[in-house]
């Protein structure tokens, strides 16, 4: 900006001096007109610098699209997590009802238009506990899964 302003000040000063000392009448008008054209050329040149600017670059909004996509994924993941937490708590309640002590782990995937329970894992000392069979049956019936993985401690 500094260089442009310096040029501008110089041109304005030269222009002012020429106009003040220029002869009156037609000759003076020609000088004034020539100076005004010179000033216009300078201004247009400054504006023309703008033509080198990459307009498509200014319109590029990749970060926004990436941010929005991340937000959408985050929403899905959070819904997924919250529902998994709900199901884990529900299964824990079922275990408690049958007197079975167990850690519950569950994994759900949500793709566009489809969601499914990938795995239900029960972790505990099942050999010494009764009622594990009832728990598994209720989970299978309620959540429509074919297999509940049991991991013995």
């Amino acid at each position: 900006m500094g260089v442009v302003l310096e040029k501008l000040l110089l041109i304005t000063a030269v222009y002012g001096v020429i106009v003040i000392v220029s002869p009156k009448g037609e000759n003076g008008n020609i000088v004034k007109f020539a100076c005004a054209i010179g000033m216009m050329v300078f201004l247009i040149n400054t504006a023309a610098d703008m033509s080198f600017i990459d307009i498509s670059g200014l319109m590029r909004t990749d970060e926004i699209k990436q941010g929005a996509a991340k937000g959408k994924e985050m929403m899905k993941t959070e819904i997924n997590k919250e529902i998994a937490t709900y199901i884990e708590k529900d299964i824990s309640d079922i275990c408690e009802r049958y007197g079975v002590k167990s850690d519950v782990e569950i994994e759900i995937t949500i793709e566009d238009g489809n969601a499914q329970i990938e795995k239900i894992e029960l972790k505990g000392d099942f050999a010494s506990q009764q009622g594990t069979g009832f728990v598994m049956n209720e989970i299978k019936n309620k959540y429509g899964v074919h297999e509940v993985i049991i991991i013995e401690d």
Partner: peptide, 26 residues
Amino acid sequence: LPLFAMWASCAGKPLSSVFITSGAMA
């Protein structure tokens, strides 16, 4: 703007967040 778009998208406005914040950024 990208951060705002991310949370607006997460708040259930994936399309409008992209359109509005892209417009603001451009």
